[in-house]
Nucleic acid binder design. Structure first.
Length: 896
DNA sequence: CAATTGACGTA
DNA sequence: CGTACGTCAATTGA
């Protein structure tokens, strides 16, 4: 690490001045925590800290605050800093929060009774200079200008708190017309309105600077005040006392007695657990959560690390080499790099470099360039399941290594998953996305900077890779501690981590697709789309509007055809399917029918098109499963999403016939849980009625309906059944009587009655729902059967809307989340069962309550057994888990 | 050109 | 004014 010298640098921040600026830089109404406390200033402060650390790479940092109550300056001049506007209501409390946040950051802050923040800054700057540490002052207070020297630089905020101007002695001279040490002299003459210090009337910076030029300094001017001619001279003589007072007040105190020494201010004492808990309290979002640790735990605050670059000629992973063996053998993190955009080019991503990082050194290597012995050593190391491996994303890293024909065993920690288990509502920790963004930045950066001081690995900055890998390594213990605190370590180790391996395989295998079938479907829908569009145009006078434009539709429907207004949206009236149906019921206008049909066909065609584009040359589609996208713990599928392939409409379902068993396999198998969420509801609520409904083995909704309506099972008609079904599922979603009524097209009063009737028979459900929300409110989180938590601070919000929403989430999360837990367990069991029985059949997809598999010739019976057992026995509820299985040539045929 | 919005597919 | 997602096209805004 050649560029890093032993140069030390301290950032000194005037806390009050900057907190106040931050307050005005960001709108308080957009930054509120769960208690309604404004946090905009705190947020701005955090961003400022991040920026300044990132840009200046300091080794030390400290913040100084004023104390309430006066200082010695007030005793000298009772109008000092008078006449200021009252502190804005929303600023109150934010300084204390900022201080609390700084504690979590491990940043030392000071207050000194009777003195101002500026005096603290002056003292620290003086001390630092003496110790050979370069001070950088971050304050908007002009009193700090006097502190600038050739070793001390002032960072003056220009706009907000992140846009800073560097003020060194020559910059001060240029802007203020005097050198820094004379600025207080000038300010004494000119006055300082911020401190309510009036200067000499008629004397501005130019005159003051001229005088200083003539007489050397303020003392010289005062000595020769009688000689100064003109109006300004007289004005000076009339205000000598004020000038002397100003000068006395604006002199910074440089010799305060502060606790600790410079080392107290050293950067790198942050505590991730504390940081996150304080961010929770502040309701801060994902960006700052990601940024702050990188700054506070950055390389500059750590001891230097040796970097070993392994090239073909360097035999660095030979186990005989004691030191390097230790590097690889001990707790290493693994980092990896991919070349392009991570899409499935020929089914494989392209690994360009791999970083192995330990506490003592990092090794950068290019696995594909490695010589035979080294390559073999690397393979052995990666395959050894006893050696724990960690990565930011084990799934992504696994893909990359697999692309280089390297197999990994012994994954022990995954930062992205750990982070997700701690903060499931924090959205953008999409592992691939985040890693990719970083990598692309690296690549772009490497391309930009022609001069490379670090080794260039095909345009990838090896230093950046090392920084990332060691960041991962250092973050692991912190996240682990946090997981432990939240009781989620087992969830990571026993569920998510092994699942990541399975998902990697599923993504890598992909699912076979019948391309001709897709082409066929596409052609058919294209034809239909054109036909229906013509039909639609014919009903509005032949005008060829864009049927996909809500805006154009609005003008046709509501302006030209004068149809009654529908539900309001941000941009006008809604034209969604429900609104159009309502309009059709009112107007019988044939255009609406054609439009709805056109929507249908267009949607299907889009889906088909998306799928067609996703088919690889090998005739397969590889989705990506995210383990950290859905806050309930469900998986999400993307690029393309294979969890929303049409199933409800007949036309849509045909798309499923394009998914087929792979070559060399006999059939596709689908296996799904029936009513898993209602079963979980029965389990969690311990409602006897619901439990016996499941144990009876009869149709659930009919059984429940017969209870609710008090009729025999064979007297339940379809209307009763569907109403009951709507109530059942509505309950799990926190549905209101209003919503239920709308859904069923019955008056709200009737919906209320229906729900009451339901609760009369299933009182346990009502009690459970009520109690579970209350418990969540007290604890601050909901929990699934496996202890997966979801934190819901809004349950105690005083904003109705936010609270109601959180309550619905609290009702649903344990149910949806427990279902997700169960099918994840099932996937581990199925995968294990297939391996144990030495079967070739393989998992392909998971669709929340359904698994899809490739079944090899002759394995159908065995696979069915493994899958059924694996799923049904995944978790023991107080009701049985029922799984139905189907097989067929295509996904459509396999459905049941 | 990137971000947002409306609409709609799934469980 | 029912939970959880991802994707598309049109639109908006920098």
């Amino acid at each position: 690490m050649s560029e890093q010298s032993s140069h030390q640098r301290i950032i000194l921040i005037d806390g009050h001045a900057m907190a106040f600026r931050a307050f005005f830089a960001l709108p308080p109404e957009s930054f509120k925590n769960g208690q309604g406390q404004a946090t905009n200033s705190v947020y701005g402060f955090a961003r400022m800290v991040f920026n300044v650390i990132k840009n200046e790479q300091p080794t030390h940092i400290a913040v100084a605050f004023d104390l309430a109550g006066g200082t010695f300056r007030d005793r000298i001049y009772d109008q000092y800093k008078g006449g200021r506007d009252a502190t804005p209501e929303e600023f109150k409390g934010q300084v204390e929060l900022t201080q609390k946040m700084l504690d979590a950051f491990g940043i030392t802050w000071y207050t000194v009774e009777d003195y101002e923040a500026d005096d603290i800054v002056a003292t620290l700057a003086t001390t630092a200079e003496k110790a050979g540490v370069e001070p950088l002052l971050l304050t908007s207070d002009r009193d700090a200008i006097q502190l600038v020297t050739d070793r001390t630089t002032l960072l003056q905020p220009v706009k907000g708190v992140t846009e800073l101007r560097r003020m060194d002695p020559s910059a001060v001279q240029e802007k203020y017309l005097v050198p820094p040490h004379l600025y207080p002299d000038l300010a004494a003459l000119v006055g300082e309105s911020a401190d309510n210090l009036p200067g000499v009337p008629g004397v501005g910076p130019k005159t003051a600077a001229k005088w200083i030029g003539l007489y050397g300094d303020l003392d010289g001017i005062l000595e020769h005040s009688e000689e100064i001619k003109g109006k300004a001279g007289q004005s000076l003589r009339d205000n000598l006392e004020a000038v002397r007072r100003n000068r006395q007040l604006n002199e910074a105190v440089r010799d305060l007695d502060l606790p600790g020494d410079l080392d107290t201010c050293r950067l790198g004492r942050g505590d991730l657990v504390a940081i996150n808990s304080v961010f929770d309290e502040l309701s801060f979002g994902p960006t700052i959560r990601r940024d702050i640790p990188t700054a506070l735990l950055s390389e500059s605050s750590q001891k230097e690390e040796r970097v070993i670059v392994a090239n073909p000629e360097l035999p660095v992973i030979e186990p005989a080499d004691g030191e390097l063996n230790a590097v690889l053998g001990e707790h290493a993190a693994v980092g990896a790099v991919v070349q392009a955009d991570g899409t499935w080019a020929e089914g494989q991503a392209d690994l360009r470099a791999l970083v192995l990082s330990s506490d003592t050194a990092s090794i950068v290597l290019q696995p594909n360039e490695l010589g035979g012995d080294d390559r073999a050593a690397l393979e052995r190391w990666l395959r050894n399941s006893v050696i724990p491996k960690r990565a930011f994303s084990t799934k992504l890293t696994g893909h990359l290594l697999s692309g280089a024909d390297l197999q990994v065993r012994g994954w022990e920690f995954d930062l992205a998953l750990a982070e997700f288990l701690c903060r499931p509502d924090q959205r953008p920790t999409d592992e691939a996305g985040l890693a990719m963004r970083h990598l692309q930045e690296d690549i772009a950066q490497a391309a930009d900077s022609g001069a490379q001081q670090s080794l260039d690995l095909d345009g990838v900055d090896s230093q950046a890779l090392v920084r990332r890998a060691s960041a991962v390594r250092r973050m692991v213990p912190m996240l682990r501690a946090e997981l432990e605190e939240r009781g989620a370590l087992g969830l990571l180790r026993d569920l998510e981590l092994p699942l990541a391996v399975i998902l990697r395989e599923m993504e890598s295998v992909g699912i076979a697709v019948d391309r001709e079938k897709l082409d066929e479907l596409d052609a058919e829908h294209e034809r239909q789309q054109a036909q229906v569009a013509e039909e639609a145009f014919s009903h509005i006078g032949g005008e060829q509007i864009n049927l996909g434009s809500p805006k154009q539709l609005q003008s046709v429907l509501f302006d030209r055809l004068n149809m009654p207004p529908t539900r309001k949206t941000k941009t006008g009236y809604s034209t969604d399917a429900e609104s159009l149906n309502t309009l059709f019921a009112q107007t019988q206008h044939p255009f609406l029918e054609a439009l709805l049909k056109h929507r249908d066909v267009t949607k299907l065609r889009q889906i088909i098109e998306t799928l067609r584009k996703a088919v690889t040359p090998e005739g397969r589609i590889h989705t990506t499963f995210s383990q950290n996208a859905a806050a309930t713990g469900r998986l999400a599928s993307s690029a393309p999403n294979l969890q929303n392939i049409p199933a409800r409409s007949e036309a849509g379902r045909q798309i499923r016939s394009a998914f087929r068993a792979s070559d060399g396999f006999a059939s596709l198998m689908t296996a799904d849980y029936s009513q898993i969420e209602m079963r979980i509801m029965a389990h969690l609520s311990e409602d006897e009625g619901l439990i016996s409904a499941f144990r009876s083995g009869e149709d659930l909704h009919s059984f429940v309906a017969s209870q609710v309506f008090g009729v025999e099972a064979d007297e339940v008609d379809t209307a009763m059944r569907s109403k009951t079904k709507a109530v059942s599922y509505g309950l799990a979603y926190g549905l209101s009587a209003f919503g239920l009524g709308r859904q069923l097209g019955i008056p709200q009063s009737e919906a209320t009655a229906l729900r009451d009737q339901y609760f009369e028979r299933f009182g346990g459900v009502r009690d459970y729902l009520r109690e579970s929300v209350e418990e969540a409110r007290e604890r601050g989180y909901t929990e699934t059967i496996l202890g997966r938590r979801r934190y819901l601070p809004d349950l105690t919000s005083d904003r109705r809307q936010a609270r109601d929403n959180a309550e619905r989430v609290a009702l649903n999360s344990p149910i949806q989340g427990s279902a997700a837990d169960i099918i994840k367990l099932a996937m581990l069991r199925v995968r294990e069962g297939l391996e144990q029985a030495d079967l070739r059949s393989r998992l392909l997809l998971q669709v929340h309550d359904e698994l899809v598999l490739d079944v090899a010739e002759g394995e159908e019976e065995q696979v069915m057994q493994v899958v059924k057992d694996g799923m049904e026995g995944a978790y023991e509820l107080s009701v049985p888990l029922d799984v139905s299985v189907g097989t067929g040539r295509t996904w459509l045929e396999a459905a049941h």
